[in-house]
Design a binder for these strands. Structure first.
Lengths: 343, 343
DNA sequence: GCGCTTTCTGTAAGCGCTTTCCGGGTGCTA
DNA sequence: TAGCACCCGGAAAGCGCTTACAGAAAGCGC
């Protein structure tokens, strides 16, 4: 016999011979319940394998125990690392994490925000560069604004324009500039840049930081030196291949992300070029794997798990004035064997 | 003025001058509503930035649109790849994915199942090897059984014992055996195995498959040849270091996962040994990065995203008799440059 | 134009839980 | 023993939605 699929609080209360109210109190410890009854309730709950219905609970006004995370693609090591940090903190707070991958589709991102809003998630975290696209910005704001009005918390990692929400901001510009300086110090004067789509703010910032610093040193970076492709390993491979097909003039290749750098490394290997003897390669992010490459990759190290941790902490922390809090995270140039001095 | 944080169906109905029922129908398209009214409702919803409360909806009996995924650690490339497959399918079905990382803590796994049960998730997916631990098995069953009774769907990837649920099973044993054969064919006769905790069924199976195949060929694998450590890059590094400290007798090292193999490669490099000249290294899983290592890693290739896709499809597919369906996925040995012939 | 079917629309119940508001024990004080 | 405060447990309301159920309106044939 099983009239209902799940046993309910009602069932537990009945089994324990108390009212639903008492059962609720006993289970949640809201108020003192005489040990005698409390034990009966707990035992009944155990026997019935009772699990409170989170929906009913949420509806009745209890706190929402889930946070939503939207990223481009979990299987990208960058997001995986950031998500890892988020999960750790969430786990400490007994929160469930709803993770969505947009696969870089702006519409899907907006749709996910809407779903998370429907779930009444305690917080929504947007991880990864936004798009420079007015339609998308408007649509996203239209979803986020009412959510914020309704007490929802939002934090973002790596995006800034237009969204007035708490932000964890890797210093892309400064990091790229620092990398430029480091590479200049190694004696490089001719560069190729492998970039993701410029519509991503992260890409734009890193290119700008890199270019500006070169300019300061009187080293030009022409448009033709920047090759754009998708923000993936294969994109890096393709971009590198394109650079090679045009005739490699550079002594150093800067990929705006490590993932693209990995593709570039593979392309170079496939073309019989060795790194760093024939050409130096540098990346950005310091995803865990790159120190284990041969050669290990020079990169701008970002504390990825911490990016996630800060973001969720920011979202979970009260923000009385609802002012926009920006938490900048510096990147640090780590010189490894993929870059060499120019003789 | 905002009496309630979110606008409700009630509000929309009022604004459109219809009843809540009609508003609900117009929004969901359940029943025909005169276009006239329908438009008014839709417009009102738009203006109020209305989002239905998913909890109320779930409580009222609508289908649950979320699936829960429990893995050991999203930032591990193996799980990231599997999760990627799951997300793709989920996205096609308009499902939200709640992803939890247990960080290999059995208790946390049980706790997460309980939370997912509370959420009335449409399905629960357990990704990654289980633990060989009777207490844990009992606790997990105690959570899962009532969930299944209540119509919940469960599918697992990579575990078998004790759980009577739909299963996607990489052929760990056969894959490891095939690897053993391939390595024997290359002329190797002395092996070291870098293993994760034996309490993980995956580890046990891979070791067993490998050992049995060697035995068939008359090649012994002594207990001392198997070094156990954590299931991570650092675990691989440590295990390899231990092997080296004992004096490397083997011509080939088999790591039970690619992640550990990456650590092993790093340890060898740090000790000035080159692969495959001084020693061959093989892994298992074929996580995306390993083909880009130098040297590229020989491994048993598992179709990781498909593992996830099959699992969620299995869970989402009706299973009338509630018989246990097992979907085996073969691994394929991919010989790359990290293994060489023994002269 | 009447009565029947066919289409909507509104009313109301109920999903499972928390929580406020009371009433009835209990224990302590006088 | 009476009186008071204090706890604790129960009844009931209500969270926002879906969905029978029933009633109203409209369409049809005769």
């Amino acid at each position: 016999m099983q009239p209902r699929p799940h046993s309910t609080l009602e069932d537990v209360a009945k089994a324990a011979g108390v009212s639903a109210a008492t059962a609720s109190r006993a289970l949640n410890g809201t108020t003192q319940v005489r040990p005698h009854l409390r034990d009966r309730v707990l035992q009944a709950a155990g026997e019935l394998a009772y699990t409170p219905n989170a929906h009913a609970r949420a509806l009745a006004g209890a706190a929402h125990r889930t946070v939503g995370v939207i990223c481009h693609d979990v299987s990208d090591p960058y997001f995986a690392a950031v998500a890892g940090g988020i999960m750790r903190v969430a786990s400490d707070h007994d929160l469930l994490v709803t993770l969505a991958s947009t696969f870089r589709d702006p519409e899907r991102e907006v749709a996910y925000v809407s779903m998370l809003r429907a779930e009444r998630a305690a917080a929504i975290l947007l991880i990864g560069s936004g798009f420079e696209n007015p339609d998308w910005e408007r649509a996203l704001s239209a979803e986020l604004e009412p959510y914020l009005q309704g007490g929802g918390r939002v934090a973002v990692v790596s995006r800034h324009r237009s969204l007035r929400v708490d932000t964890v901001l890797p210093e892309n510009r400064a990091g790229a500039a620092a990398m430029a300086r480091a590479l200049l110090d190694l004696g490089h004067r001719r560069f190729a840049v492998l970039a993701g789509p410029r519509t991503l703010t992260t890409v734009a910032d890193r290119i700008a930081g890199f270019r500006d610093e070169l300019r300061k040193a009187g080293v030009p970076l022409r448009t033709a030196d920047i090759v754009e492709n998708t923000f993936t390993r294969d994109g890096g491979y393709a971009a590198m291949t394109e650079v090679l097909s045009r005739g490699l003039g550079a002594t150093c290749v800067f990929a705006v992300t490590d993932v693209m750098a990995i593709g570039a490394l593979a392309a170079l290997r496939d073309h019989g070029l060795s790194v760093p003897e024939d050409v130096s390669v540098a990346g950005f992010d310091d995803i865990p794997i790159v120190r284990d490459l041969a050669p290990p990759l020079t990169t701008v190290a970002l504390p990825l798990p911490q990016l996630g941790e800060r973001a969720i902490e920011l979202a979970l922390t009260d923000n009385p004035g609802r002012r926009r809090r920006i938490h900048r995270m510096a990147g640090e140039v780590v010189l490894r064997a993929s870059t060499a001095k120019v003789l």
